[in-house]
Design a protein around this nucleic acid. Structure first.
Lengths: 247, 247
DNA sequence: AGAAACTACGTACACCATACATAGAAACGT
DNA sequence: ACGTTTCTATGTATGGTGTACGTAGTTTCT
């Protein structure tokens, strides 16, 4: 596989930029701009008008600078997007230390889910490589805590963390804009007319199923579509740990 | 929430286009072009040179037509992308009827995973709304079969199907380009230098963990990172079904 | 035959990322 | 103090993008 589809930034440049590796130099005028300022402006633009409104010109005018000034601090738009996504992710939630592992994981999932709702544009930023930003690693670290405490060993914990991250991300991508744009009913009705029971037997059977349990009680309550899967996964993890030879 | 970030096509236009709802009209010259032809050309371009090479001009020259001719059949590039993604998804796999539910689900997951590897650009196509294309619905239908047979009822089966779809999609987005671009070792080493154990305690502990089990025995074998989560999820589903009142 | 309608095309516009050259200001060595 | 160096910010220019709009030509119906 020759990895078409990736003109994107390589790992090295991403790392140096994400970790503020720029040494500002000593000779010329002190730069009033910085990667942080630019990234924050980019986040502001994306928050306000979405990712498609995020152009270099827009960010520059947001800051009151010329377009090309940005390129003194950021090598390309792709990399700016990557930094903006990391900045936009923010710090992971503090998990309730008194709670059990399952509750902590649910708390983490709920926070990430909420984050994607607050900044849906993050889901549109194309991933060029594995997450290596400070904030993204912090989120990962926070999740690994409860997973390790639950009894998973290294590789398993990594896989489980990837599983949950990917799950929330994928679910958000698929089902977020559904409820946002048109009511669930609108979709249900529109699609129903197309469903030939001969071609889509299982789908037609399931399609009219009630959504079930629209409880908005707890703060870290997950929507059913997400919570069901997370709970089943955690069930499985508990069973796996319990069945381990050492226990 | 006002749904910024979406200038994209609405559900109605997508539906009519995806389901070939175009009635060609009767008066003028018969059109030699069609949505299918255009979509197939788009898939060819994306397969060859990635999604960023997929421009209207490129598709047009691929077909030997002028750029603007496409707009007689496709109202916008966004919609073309949506159709191309559906066409590119292709038909879902035939599941082994003799196998049990778990094996069937794994087979489905493996096929989707392989599909994303074959056409990584599909992961970059922004999702404007829930999947409603014929092929995407077919994939969903195929998955619902084993899930219903496993004992899940309507809403649960839907949630489980969303779970698995989102999972494969998210995992592919996160971990595919990792192994593609640079070896796993490269990433491991580069990141290791940044990991301050005080800031990322759990991560540092896990980071050196062996990848474990690189067995390439079976055809529908999933990579550990994906397979572990799927298996744990299916464990949980089985437990859930077994614990149901009616049983 | 005439009219209507539809396809394909060419032109034009606004916008995009960014390569490159330039001007100016700040800090250094002397 | 002064020149030199070096870095920042800017301006200009290029090749690309999606697509609105007007036009020519062709096919089918009346």
């Amino acid at each position: 596989m020759t990895t078409r589809d990736s003109k994107g930034p390589d790992l090295q440049s991403s790392l140096t930029l994400l970790w503020a590796g720029r040494t500002p130099g000593k000779r010329g005028p002190r730069s009033r701009l910085s990667v942080e300022l630019i990234a924050q402006a980019a986040v502001r633009v994306a928050d306000a008008d979405g990712l498609e409104a995020l152009s270099m010109q827009r960010v520059a005018t947001e800051l009151g600078y010329s377009t090309m000034s940005l390129y003194n601090h950021v090598p390309s738009k792709d990399l700016l997007l990557e930094v903006a996504a990391d900045v936009g992710a923010g710090a992971p939630p503090e998990l309730d230390a008194a709670a059990d592992h399952r509750h902590q994981v649910r708390q983490w999932v709920g926070a990430l889910w909420a984050g994607f709702h607050t900044r849906p544009w993050i889901l549109r930023v194309p991933l060029e490589h594995a997450p290596v930003g400070p904030h993204q690693l912090a989120w990962l670290d926070r999740l690994l805590g409860p997973l390790l405490a639950a009894g998973l060993v290294g590789g398993e914990a990594r896989a489980a963390a990837l599983h949950l991250t990917a799950l929330v991300r994928g679910t958000a991508q698929i089902s977020m804009n559904l409820t946002a744009e048109n009511g669930d009913a609108g979709l249900t009705h529109a699609v129903a007319e197309l469903l030939d029971p001969e071609v889509y037997p299982a789908l037609t059977a399931v399609h009219a199923a009630e959504v079930a349990g629209a409880g908005h009680a707890d703060d870290d309550a997950l929507p059913f579509e997400l919570g069901f899967g997370v709970d089943r996964f955690l069930d499985g993890v508990e069973g796996w740990v319990a069945a381990k030879p050492g226990r």
